[in-house]
C-alpha cells in the first residue's frame, strides 16, 4: 500500500517535472495553473441550490434572479481566480546560508507585469503559507522561512503558489521549482579548538593561539576584496590614503591548521566544533587552514576562506 502511494507520488512528481520544468524564473500560465472549487465554493453552490428551491416554490422571479446571479458569479469566479495568478512571474533570488537551528530564509521575487496581484499565498505545505501582494508593474521580494534542521543543502522542493482571490470560492495554485536552496552550516559548538598536531616539534606553540602582535607588523598594502576587515588601516583611510591593509609576518611561518581528526566526538559533533573554531578564528583575525578527510583548505584569513570552510563543513560527507 505504502509503496503504491510512493509510486503514485513519484509519478506525480515526474508529471510535474514535465509540465512545469524547474527554472530560475517561472511565468504562471495555463500550463502551470490548476484550479478547483474550495469548500466555501461548494457551500456557495449549496446556497444557490437552496435559493433556487425557494424561487421554484414561491414562483418568485426575483429569487430566480439572485440564484442565477450568484451562479454566474460562481462561474465568473473561475476566470477571476485564474486571473489572480496568471501572468505572475516568480524569480529565484540567492539565499544566505544559515546555521542549523536557525530559520532559513528563502527569498524570491514576485514580478507583476500587467496587473497587480492580491492575496497571494506562498510556501511549502504543511507549513503555513505566507501572504503577499504585488502592485502592477512592481516587484516584491518575498522571504519565506523554513526551520533549518540539518546541515547541507536545504532544498524545500516545489513551492506552492496559490490564490483564492477574489471570492474564496475557488483556489488556483501551481507548484513551481525555482531551484531554491539554502546552505545550512553545522551549528557551532563551543569547545577546545581542534588544531592539527604538527609532529609535536613545537608543542606549546602549536596549541597556543597567538593574538596578532604588533611586533609581527610588516607594512601596508592596498586592500583586496576578501581581506579581513579587522586589519583595515582606518587611520590611513581617514587621512584619505584609500583602503589599506596591515600585513603581519608572524603568522605566515607557523600556520594554524584546524583538523577534523583532532576534534572530539562523533562526526556531527566534530563538524560543529570545527564550525565554532572557524568562526572564532576568523573573528579574531587569524589566518588558518582546515583539513577534513579528503578536503584541505590552505590557510587564509579572508571572509571568502571562512565561507569556503563553512561550506566544506556543511557538505562534508553528503552526496553532492
Amino acid at each position: 500500500m505504502r509503496s503504491l502511494l510512493a509510486a503514485q507520488r513519484a509519478r506525480w512528481q515526474r508529471w510535474l517535472n514535465r509540465r512545469i520544468p524547474p527554472a530560475r524564473e517561472v511565468r504562471l500560465d495555463q500550463r502551470r495553473i490548476f484550479i478547483i472549487p474550495t469548500r466555501q465554493g461548494l457551500g456557495f453552490l449549496l446556497l444557490i441550490a437552496l435559493l433556487l428551491i425557494g424561487a421554484i416554490n414561491y414562483q418568485n422571479n426575483l429569487a430566480y434572479f439572485l440564484a442565477f446571479w450568484l451562479l454566474s458569479l460562481f462561474l465568473v469566479a473561475i476566470l477571476n481566480t485564474y486571473r489572480s495568478l496568471s501572468g505572475l512571474v516568480l524569480r529565484h533570488l540567492p539565499s544566505v546560508p544559515v546555521f542549523v537551528g536557525e530559520q532559513a530564509c528563502l527569498p524570491l521575487e514576485l514580478i507583476a507585469e500587467r496587473r497587480s496581484y492580491q492575496a497571494l499565498a506562498l510556501g511549502w505545505p504543511p507549513a503555513q503559507l505566507s501572504g503577499a501582494d504585488v502592485e502592477q508593474g512592481g516587484n516584491t521580494r518575498v522571504e519565506l522561512f523554513l526551520p533549518a534542521a540539518k546541515r547541507g543543502w536545504l532544498k524545500p522542493g516545489r513551492l506552492r503558489v496559490e490564490s483564492r482571490f477574489p471570492l474564496g470560492l475557488f483556489v488556483a495554485w501551481s507548484w513551481v521549482d525555482l531551484d531554491q536552496q539554502v546552505l545550512v552550516y553545522p551549528a557551532p559548538m563551543a569547545g577546545a579548538i581542534p588544531l592539527a598536531d604538527h609532529g609535536a616539534q613545537d608543542d606549546d606553540e602549536g596549541v597556543r593561539i597567538i593574538p596578532a602582535g604588533v611586533d609581527d607588523y610588516q607594512g601596508l598594502r592596498t586592500y583586496q576584496p576578501g581581506d579581513n576587515k579587522r586589519r583595515l588601516h582606518w587611520k590611513a583611510y581617514s587621512r584619505g590614503q584609500g583602503l589599506l591593509v596591515k600585513e603581519f609576518a608572524g603568522l605566515a611561518g607557523r600556520d594554524v591548521w584546524l583538523d577534523f581528526a583532532s576534534a572530539s566526538g562523533g562526526v556531527e559533533q566534530r563538524l560543529s566544533r570545527l564550525t565554532h573554531a572557524v568562526l572564532t578564528l576568523h573573528q579574531q583575525g587569524h589566518a588558518f587552514g582546515m583539513r577534513l578527510p579528503g578536503v584541505e583548505l590552505a590557510p587564509s584569513d579572508s571572509a571568502s576562506h571562512r565561507d569556503a570552510c563553512l561550506r566544506a563543513l556543511a557538505l562534508y560527507g553528503l552526496p553532492t
Binding site: I56, Y64, W69, L73, N80, L167
Partner: peptide, 26 residues
C-alpha cells in the same frame, strides 16, 4: 465589477431556465 461581469450570464440563465411548478407548498 464582479457582479457586472456575471450580469450577462445571469440574464441568459434567467431567460432560458425552465420555470417549473412549486415542488411543495410554502
Amino acid at each position: 465589477g464582479l457582479l457586472l461581469q456575471a450580469l450577462p450570464l445571469m440574464l441568459l440563465l434567467f431567460v432560458f431556465f425552465p420555470r417549473i411548478g412549486p415542488l411543495w407548498s410554502m
